[in-house]
Simulated scan of single mutants.
Amino acid sequence: MTRPPTAAQRRIIDAAEPVTGRLTGTEIQLAALVKRGLAFRHPRPPHDHFLTPAGHRLRETAEVAEKVPETAVPAAAPAETGVFAARVGGEEAAEAGPARVREVHSAWQGLLELRRMTNPGGAMDRPCGWERTHLVRAAALALEAAGHRPAGADADAAGAGGGYRVRATPQPEAVAVREPDAEALRACAATLEKAGWQVGEHTDPRTRQRYLLASPRRA
């Protein structure tokens, strides 16, 4: 890409579906994004257009520039943006009503469709490329979609108040999942394994608390 996208193209990119990256626009507009390497046309009917990894990165540029790294804070978008973000644990004023349940279900179904469209052979039983570049959000979505409860903002680092927390780790393809309740922690492990993640249980040498290390399964 030699030039930045036009304002109209940027609006189309910004309006893409949060998880799948599906685009809406005229054929001319979408073709221009394909030419720039920011979108691709799916070969199967209805031949929808989706963001490429470069398109996803461009859409997230402004978002990321306004936030500190996700290793320091929960990877959740501010509520006023209207953009869906899976709850990683520790968010303020987390709405948990029927509307949120529907929103999470829709996001999870969209992610499964993205797996079908982008994984070799249409495999839906293992994470796709988007998940590998958004590890914390992807793991949190799998947990929230399965009904697990994220920790609230009032839960301290020791886990008072209960609920899961998903955080980045120094390992390039692993997240840490903490949950003070041992049974709930094992349930989180089962959910992630079912969602296509490799999961191991470990003990924090400093706090002696058990936690999970989870990585996207490749095959």
Rank of each mutant, 00 (worst) to 15 (best):
G162R: 08
A160W: 08
H148P: 13
P172H: 04
A158K: 03
D156W: 08
V166I: 01
E179T: 04
G161P: 03
G152L: 05
Y164V: 03
A174D: 01
A176R: 08
G161S: 13
V177K: 00
A157Q: 12
R165T: 11
P172K: 09
A174E: 00
G152F: 05
A151L: 13
A176E: 11
G163A: 09
T169Q: 07
A153V: 15
G152Y: 07
T169N: 03
V175E: 00
A158E: 13
R165S: 04
P150F: 10
V166N: 02
G162D: 01
A168W: 00
A174K: 06
A155Y: 05
Q171E: 15
A158T: 14
G163N: 02
R167F: 01
A176I: 06
R178N: 15
A176S: 14
V175T: 02
G159P: 01
E173S: 15
H148A: 12
P172N: 11
V166S: 07
A176N: 06
A157I: 13
V166G: 02
T169V: 06
G152A: 06
V166T: 11
A157L: 06
A155D: 10
A168Y: 00
V177Y: 02
R165K: 09
R165I: 04
T169D: 05
A157C: 15
R167I: 14
Y164F: 08
H148F: 14
A151M: 14
D154K: 14
V175K: 00
Y164H: 07
G147V: 12
R149A: 11
A155G: 04
R149Q: 14
V166D: 05
E173R: 12
T169R: 03
P170Y: 10
R149C: 07
D154I: 14
H148W: 09
Q171L: 11
R149Y: 12
G163S: 11
A174T: 07
A157R: 11
G159K: 01
R167D: 12
G147T: 05
P170G: 14
G163D: 01
P172G: 05
R165L: 04
A157S: 12
G152N: 07
G159L: 10
Q171G: 13
E173Y: 08
A158D: 14
V166L: 09
D154A: 15
A158Q: 09
P150V: 12
V175F: 00
Q171R: 14
V175M: 09
Q171I: 08
D156Y: 04
P150L: 10
A160C: 15
E173L: 15
G163E: 10
P172V: 06
G161N: 11
G161Q: 06
P150A: 10
A155S: 15
R149M: 11
R167E: 08
Q171Y: 13
